[in-house]
Amino acid sequence: MDTTNLSNVTNAELEAADRIGKEAGVRFDDCYQCGKCSAGCPMAHAMDYVPRQVIRLLQLGIVDEALNAKSPWICAHCMVCSARCPQGVDITATMLSVRREAKRRGLRPDKEADIFDDIFIGNVRSFGKSNEAILAAKYNLLSGHLMQDMLNAPKMAARGMIGPKIHSVKDKEAVKKLVDKALSKGGEQK
């Protein structure tokens, strides 16, 4: 973040910041930018904006920049930031909220993370359970990382960790219905 012209902030962005805060259950003004969150963040080294900066963007209403940031997708949801914030700001919830808003708008600043989570949920919607071998194989195909962890697969098979059996719930329709109903609310809770 260099110089920021706040007069460029649009009303749509301010409304979006409000919505993101509500969904996260966070008042961004509570943050006084001490940086405790970012000091403890294990993923900060890989982020374009450290957690403190993401909150700052939201405080100022520079939402489009926050929505295009990679950080919310790099966040590992370890919750260290939220646990240590002296102001009780739930930074993890904010990261999640930004990411979900970006996803609703069709943005995917981090292709890999998006592919992975979509396959995971698709897997659960179809079988009611997560099948790790299908998850890894599909991920490799769709992300183009074809050989990733392939050397570990035979070992896993030999140890009985993965096999040809697909795990699924009995009532697959019930889980499918539940997933669809939850997703149909468009992120609104109540």
């Binding site: 995971f120 659960v124 359970k129 539940l178 939850a182």
Partner: peptide
């Protein structure tokens, strides 16, 4: 007939899904 808990994949996808599963 328990099902997957959704874990962080549900959390990043949708708040309701992360509760429902």
């Amino acid at each position: 007939d328990w099902c997957c808990c959704g874990t962080s994949a549900a959390l990043v996808t949708d708040k309701n899904l992360a509760v429902a599963l």
